[in-house]
């Protein structure tokens, strides 16, 4: 998994990538030293849970990616089988939730976990 994350960081010049279980547990990470990984993974999972529950309430199930764009950077969460791929990007990068590199990494992570996503 770490090799996939490392390759993704190099390809899209992301600040860091994490694989997070739906309960917030950290599975794997490639980030700068000193990053509080447990905090980031818990926050990422909390965001996915809040939005997922809200979408389910409104009949819009099947969340595949979520992007938060801000002044200094972006946060992308992409479904990867039983986990989520969390990517941190700089503000100037024109990479969105539809990025082929991120989708491809998420698919490879899904395969690596031995599961295939049934969603989009």
């Amino acid at each position: 998994m770490k090799a996939i994350l490392k390759e993704l960081n190099e390809t899209i010049s992301s600040r860091g990538c994490l694989v997070v279980a739906r309960d917030g547990m950290l599975v794997a990470a490639e980030v700068e030293p000193g990053t509080d990984l447990d905090r980031l993974s818990a926050l990422g999972a909390a965001i996915v849970t809040e939005v997922g529950e809200c979408l389910a309430r409104t009949g819009m199930e099947g969340l595949s990616t979520l992007e938060i764009a801000a002044e200094h950077g972006k946060l992308i969460l992409a479904e990867a089988g039983p986990t989520y791929l969390l990517v941190l990007l700089g503000a100037r990068l024109e990479i969105g939730p539809g990025s082929i590199e991120i989708k491809s990494a998420a698919q490879r992570l899904t395969r690596e976990a031995g599961l295939h996503s049934t969603k989009q």
């Binding site: 980031l40 099947g62 595949s64 938060i68």
Partner: peptide, 30 residues
């Protein structure tokens, strides 16, 4: 969904030190 993003997601995402928020994009089968 809009209210949830404004009241729940943004405060949590603020912890990532990304600065002022611009937008949130959610993709899915919907």
């Amino acid at each position: 969904v809009v209210r949830t993003v404004a009241t729940k997601v943004y405060p949590q995402a603020r912890e990532f030190d990304l600065g002022k928020f611009e937008r949130c994009t959610i993709k899915g089968s919907f």
